[in-house]
Write a protein that binds this DNA or RNA. Structure first.
Ligand SMILES: NC(=O)c1ccc[n+]([C@@H]2O[C@H](COP(=O)([O-])OP(=O)(O)OC[C@H]3O[C@@H](n4cnc5c(N)ncnc54)[C@H](O)[C@@H]3O)[C@@H](O)[C@H]2O)c1
Ligand SMILES: NC(=O)c1ccc[n+]([C@@H]2O[C@H](COP(=O)([O-])OP(=O)(O)OC[C@H]3O[C@@H](n4cnc5c(N)ncnc54)[C@H](O)[C@@H]3O)[C@@H](O)[C@H]2O)c1
Lengths: 222, 222
DNA sequence: CCGCTATCGAGAAACTTATATCGAGAAAAA
DNA sequence: TTTTTCTCGATATAAGTTTCTCGATAGCGG
């Protein structure tokens, strides 16, 4: 096997790293040369040990009493996340969410470069959204192969998500970022990541329900 | 203390419930009266026991050999998540992401009803987006109080997120759904939930990096 | 009617993740 | 120079989450 530069870490650690990265970038902008786990932890109300363990995943080592070199830690986190070079991606479903993603300026900093959009709505095909062409779905397989596209973004209604994913898989796409609230099946070897906004919303509304229920003002009328 | 209808469960459980709910709704549409944890688990490649434990949180009880009554389980999950009655919400930042959220048809099914948008861009103020008025930010505090708005959605650039949140807190908003990648401070008693797309993206690109690195084609040149 | 099997619910065990403790090193203060 | 303090990294402990095991129950097939 080849040398593993990227070590395996928990999903929880993986999801905290972008938080640190953001903070570090703004600290670097402010000219801060070094940063300690204690400082980072304070910003997020995390345990400093946790931050230290998370950063360990990147391979960067700190020094006692000083902490970590800000810029070099930024580079290591980006490398670890695969954000040092942007991956080209195709987006399918140029609707509300699709447009928002196409219009997001910062994705290049997050390792993502959406190069084209696809839609089955003939009124949308041929138009340009934030300077990306909207193409008919039939063109996806050939183009994806020719352009060596690894990432596919799914922003179609839930009922069409599986067929879009199947098409992406056939087209050789290796990683799928799905926004549709549907349980998708993919073959082994393909990566599926669901960006489920409703999960986040569920946590919010459940907590709110508990709070409103507790002081008994708004909910008791049910 | 008042009777606690909503029991405390782990965040992980809470985030799986919307997945089940979606599936159950489509099963109910197909006329399926009963559903077992085994069936649900198969769809998501989860452990059946985990599904059973998750559903326990809702208070619904199943019967041996039969499972759960689909419709009644749906109702219980929605109650538990606070999705049975939609909460009115204000959205601040009528940009790309803000528009996508305003245009999302299904939020009423997820306990959310965005009633107005706010922006500081004077060119946007006064316009209508998906039939919701875009108002100047100064109107937020009074309106929020008058309309008893509990939920605030933050879709402004990261550097303005904290000031928007502060304004919402002053306006009596109790729960904040934040899309900006910034670590926000809120007073005790206010609920903050971050919908961080970049975290999800980080998992995807990290996994992709590992896969691409393994078969040694694309990454070894580093 | 009587096993057989699918399923629930409860409790135990295994696993994962988070937090606490401690020694060592490095800068700052005395 | 010596002491103090901060921080890292390693290890140990605790907490949380998932998976396994098992007895009970309700329909199904013989
Ligand atoms: N808009 C949001 O805020 C939001 C939030 C959470 C989840 N989502 C999810 O994201 C997805 C898209 O939502 P939206 O609001 O953008 O919907 P939308 O209706 O605005 O856009 C869907 C787009 O997909 C296209 N499409 C439909 N079937 C297609 C197919 N088979 N192949 C190619 N294109 C196809 C349509 O023409 C349309 O342009 C949905 O699954 C939705 O549940 C959206
Ligand atoms: N668009 C995406 O796909 C996407 C993805 C992930 C995260 N985000 C985050 O969501 C937020 C919004 O992103 P976007 O792409 O919609 O940006 P955008 O620039 O399109 O929209 C931002 C909007 O906020 C308004 N605004 C700025 N400062 C304000 C203030 N102080 N008060 C009120 N309104 C203000 C602007 O006028 C603009 O309309 C950002 O924090 C971004 O990082 C967006």
């Amino acid at each position: 096997m080849s040398q593993l530069k990227v070590r395996v870490v928990s999903r929880s650690t993986l999801k905290r790293l972008p938080l640190y990265l953001h903070l570090l970038e703004s600290l670097a902008d402010q000219g801060l040369q070094n940063v300690s786990c204690t400082q980072i932890a304070e910003k997020f109300d995390f345990d400093p040990t946790q931050v230290r363990k998370d950063l360990e995943a990147t391979g960067e080592v700190g020094t006692a009493r000083i902490g970590f070199r800000t810029v070099s830690l930024i580079v290591k986190i980006k490398e670890f996340l695969g954000w040092n070079n942007a991956h080209d991606a195709f987006l399918v479903g140029a609707g509300n969410m699709g447009k928002a993603l196409l219009g997001y300026k910062d994705f290049d900093r997050y390792g993502l470069n959406i190069v084209a959009a696809f839609d089955k709505d003939t009124r949308k095909v041929g138009s340009r959204i934030f300077n990306r062409e909207v193409l008919p779905l039939v063109k996806l397989p050939n183009l994806a192969k020719r352009m060596h596209i690894n990432i596919g973004i799914v922003t179609v209604p839930a009922e069409y998500a599986q067929e879009v994913v199947d098409l992406m898989v056939v087209a050789g796409i290796k990683a799928i970022w799905n926004f549709a609230p549907a349980p998708l099946k993919i073959p082994e070897g393909v990566i599926l990541e669901n960006a489920r906004l409703t999960q986040s919303l569920a946590v919010l509304t459940n907590n709110l329900t508990k709070v409103l229920g507790d002081d008994g003002k708004d909910l008791e009328k049910n």
